[in-house]
Amino acid sequence: MARLPRLTIPGQPHYVVQRGNNLQAIFVDGQDYASMKDLLREMGRRFGIEIHAFILLPNQVHLLLTPQTAQSLPQFMQSVGRTYVRTFNNRHGRSGTLWEGRYRATVLEAQAWLLPAMVVLEHQAVVHGLIGRAVDYGWSSARHNAGAQVDGMVRLHPAYWRLGDTPFAREAAYATMLDRGASTDLQEVVLGAALKGWVLGSEGFIEGLKSGTERRLQRQKAGRPARAQGEKAE
């Protein structure tokens, strides 16, 4: 089956995954991780990308971001990918591809899905057995979003601000969500949508997107995730 064309909707959050070829390592040491983070920061500013959450795993990168224009995301990912491969190959005396083809991404409805998607993303270090608590992983946005440190690359989404009336309240609420983690079902929904390109959102949200594209947006109905994941009731 032919792959769907990638969908980029300016002003809407996207969950993006870029993996190593055959899931091989894309980071060998701390300098590699730092190089990738520097690139994300630089290219994000250059191409109009707001990064709300990120995690750098040994063989993949996950990003939760909002592009300003229809070209922001593809230009950002192309520039990050090409520059990082050149730097990585030069450092480690190798040649050839590093990535598993093109990046994968899904658009998601912020009100219902942004916070659950953040938890899924930042919890990946725990899922992959790299750390016991997500907030202790150094190469992600978890410490920033949980209030443990400040990371100037991360931009808080309005959906995050609804967690509380003060920075402390928001950080504490999110830290609790992060410690609870994400259920296996929620991970499968979010990561499956990102890898397959299906939009995550309510029927009304998806219908609103259909007017701007002829691309198929969903395989089956997508709804609001269970509030048990820690999100406040509206």
Rank of each mutant, 00 (worst) to 15 (best):
Y103I: 10
W139F: 12
E207V: 03
V28F: 14
G20Q: 08
V150Y: 06
G93I: 04
R224V: 07
A53V: 09
A233Q: 07
N59Y: 01
N145L: 15
V80W: 02
P167G: 00
A233T: 14
T184H: 05
R215C: 00
R91A: 13
R143L: 06
T97I: 08
D179E: 15
D151R: 14
A70L: 02
M177E: 01
N90D: 15
Y174G: 11
G208K: 15
Q229R: 04
A105W: 04
Q68R: 07
G96W: 14
S202Q: 03
Q24C: 08
A233N: 09
Q111M: 08
L121F: 14
G96Y: 07
A25T: 11
V28A: 09
F47C: 09
A146T: 11
L4Y: 07
D32A: 04
K210A: 15
N21C: 08
R91W: 02
T83L: 10
L23Y: 14
I51H: 00
H144F: 06
G201Y: 02
H128W: 04
Q31T: 12
P116L: 06
A105N: 14
Y174T: 06
R3S: 00
R219M: 11
I131F: 05
R6E: 01
A105T: 13
Y15C: 06
G96N: 09
Q24H: 13
G223N: 04
G48C: 06
I26S: 00
F47T: 04
D29T: 07
G223R: 11
V107C: 12
Q111A: 15
G96R: 15
A110G: 11
P10Q: 01
R219K: 11
A117W: 10
V135Y: 00
R216N: 08
Y174V: 04
M36L: 14
F205L: 06
L186H: 00
L57D: 08
K221M: 12
L200Y: 05
R227S: 09
G20R: 10
V16W: 00
V126L: 08
D136A: 11
E203G: 13
M77C: 08
L186A: 01
F47Q: 02
M43P: 02
A193K: 05
R216K: 12
V154L: 06
R46G: 11
M118A: 14
G93E: 15
L7K: 08
A222L: 06
S140Q: 03
L186C: 00
R215H: 09
R6F: 07
A222D: 04
Q218S: 14
W113M: 03
L108Y: 13
L209C: 06
T66I: 02
F205T: 05
L7P: 09
E122V: 09
A233L: 10
T66A: 03
Q68F: 07
